Measured scan of single mutants.
Amino acid sequence: AGSTTLRAVGKLQVRLATKTEPKKLEKYLQKLSALPMTADILAETGIRKTVKRLRKHQHVGDFARDLAARWKKLVLVD
């Protein structure tokens, strides 16, 4: 499952970095939220930084902030 999640995170990371349409960004964040994330995947992909960049986004900022905070707890636990 780890390598599958890693690939999925990579694809979503590229999309988050290149797309600007709020509905698409929200969809990608929801998909990321549903993935079985680990501290290793967060470290290897840097996805948390990508998501943190969206914290001030008018439409998806709250979602991005919550997701980044949830992942921060995951990193602190591991």
Rank of each mutant, 00 (worst) to 15 (best):
L32D: 03
Q13V: 10
R53H: 11
F63V: 06
K56M: 14
K24W: 06
R15G: 15
K31E: 15
A1R: 05
F63I: 13
G2S: 12
P36C: 07
T45L: 02
A69M: 10
P22R: 03
R65N: 11
E44R: 05
K31V: 14
K52I: 14
V77A: 12
T20N: 10
L29H: 00
T38I: 03
L12Y: 07
A39P: 12
L76N: 11
L25I: 11
R7V: 14
P36Q: 07
R65A: 12
A34M: 09
P36H: 09
T4N: 12
L16S: 00
P36N: 09
G10S: 13
D78S: 07
K11D: 15
R15D: 15
K23S: 14
R15E: 15
L16H: 03
T5A: 03
L54P: 00
I41G: 02
F63H: 10
F63M: 12
P22C: 07
K72D: 14
S33L: 03
R65G: 04
A43Q: 10
R70D: 04
V9T: 03
V14R: 07
F63G: 03
P22Q: 01
D40P: 06
D66A: 05
L25V: 03
R53L: 13
P22K: 04
W71F: 13
L32F: 09
T4D: 15
V51A: 02
Y28K: 00
E26W: 06
E21R: 05
Y28H: 06
L42P: 00
W71E: 00
D40Y: 15
Q30C: 08
G46D: 04
W71V: 03
L74T: 05
L42T: 07
M37W: 01
A17N: 14
S33D: 11
R70K: 10
L74I: 08
A8K: 05
V77K: 10
V14H: 09
Q30T: 05
T38D: 09
R48N: 07
A39H: 07
K52D: 14
P36T: 09
T18R: 07
K24T: 13
V9G: 01
Q58A: 12
L16Y: 00
I47P: 00
A69Y: 03
K11P: 01
K23W: 13
A8P: 04
I47W: 02
V9P: 02
E21V: 04
A39I: 12
L74A: 05
L16M: 10
A64W: 03
L74H: 05
V77P: 13
L12F: 08
L76H: 11
L74S: 05
V51G: 02
L29Q: 01
R70I: 01
R70G: 04
L67N: 00
R48G: 12
K19S: 15
T18H: 10
K49G: 14
T5W: 09
L42W: 03
Y28A: 11
R70F: 05
V60M: 00
L6V: 09
Y28G: 03
A69P: 01
L12A: 04
A68F: 05
V75H: 08
L12V: 05
G2H: 13
A1K: 07
D78Y: 06
T4K: 07
E44S: 06
R48L: 15
K27I: 11
A8I: 14
T38S: 08
V77Q: 12
D66H: 07
R55H: 08
K56C: 14
L25G: 02
G10V: 14
Y28E: 03
A68L: 12
I41K: 04
L76P: 13
S33K: 07
V77N: 11
V14F: 03
V51C: 00
R48Q: 12
T45K: 04
K56T: 14
A39Y: 08
T50V: 10
G46Y: 00
R55Y: 14
T18G: 11
K24P: 01
Q13M: 10
K52Y: 14
T4M: 09
R15S: 14
R48E: 15
K11W: 04
L74F: 07
V14M: 11
K11I: 14
L76F: 13
I47T: 01
D40A: 14
A1E: 15
K49R: 09
T38Y: 00
G46N: 10
D78G: 09
G46R: 05
A68R: 01
Q58E: 12
L12N: 05
K19P: 14
L42N: 00
L42E: 03
K27W: 07
M37Y: 08
H59D: 11
A69N: 11
T20G: 09
G61A: 05
K49E: 15
V60A: 00
I41L: 06
D78Q: 07
A69F: 06
H59I: 13
G46M: 04
A68M: 08
Y28F: 06
K19E: 15
A64I: 02
K72Q: 06
T38G: 00
P22T: 09
L16E: 06
I47S: 02
G10P: 15
Y28M: 09
L12D: 05
T5N: 06
V51I: 08
G46K: 05
L67F: 00
T18E: 15
L54M: 04
T38N: 10
G2M: 12
L6F: 03
T4H: 09
K56H: 14
A69V: 09
L29I: 12
L25T: 01
V9K: 00
Q58P: 14
K73H: 07
L67A: 04
E26L: 11
P36R: 05
T18D: 14
D66W: 10
L29W: 02
L42Y: 08
V60L: 06
T20I: 07
K27C: 11
K49M: 13
L12M: 08
G2Y: 08
L54H: 07
L6Q: 09
D40C: 15
L29R: 01
K73C: 09
K56S: 14
K19N: 15
R53D: 15
E44Y: 04
V51L: 08
K72F: 00
H59M: 11
G61W: 05
W71C: 01
Q30D: 06
K56V: 11
T20F: 08
R55K: 07
Q58L: 14
A39F: 08
L6R: 05
L35V: 06
E44G: 04
L54A: 00
T38Q: 04
R70H: 10
K52S: 14
H59F: 11
L16R: 00
R53Y: 12
T45F: 02
L32V: 04
W71A: 01
F63P: 02
T38F: 02
V77E: 13
L74K: 01
K72L: 03
R7P: 01
K72C: 07
K11R: 13
E26S: 06
K56D: 15
T5D: 12
K11E: 15
H57R: 04
F63T: 07
A43K: 10
D66M: 08
A1S: 11
E44C: 05
D78F: 03
K27D: 11
A43E: 13
R48F: 15
K56N: 14
L67R: 02
F63N: 00
R15M: 15
G61T: 03
L54V: 02
L54F: 11
D66N: 11
E44V: 07
T38V: 02
K49I: 11
T18I: 06
E21P: 07
L16G: 01
T45Q: 03
L35N: 05
R15I: 14
L25P: 01
L32R: 02
I47E: 01
G46H: 09
S33W: 04
K24N: 13
R53V: 11
G46A: 06
V75Q: 10
M37I: 11
Q13F: 03
W71H: 00
K19W: 14
L29C: 05
R70P: 00
T5H: 04
E26C: 04
L42M: 08
R55G: 14
K19V: 15
G2Q: 10
G2K: 09
L67H: 02
V77W: 09
D62V: 04
G46I: 00
T50C: 07
W71M: 09
T20L: 12
K23D: 15
R7F: 08
Q13N: 02
Y28P: 01
T4W: 12
R70M: 05
Q30P: 03
I47K: 03
A17R: 07
K31S: 10
H57Y: 02
G46F: 01
M37A: 01
V14S: 11
K31M: 13
V60W: 00
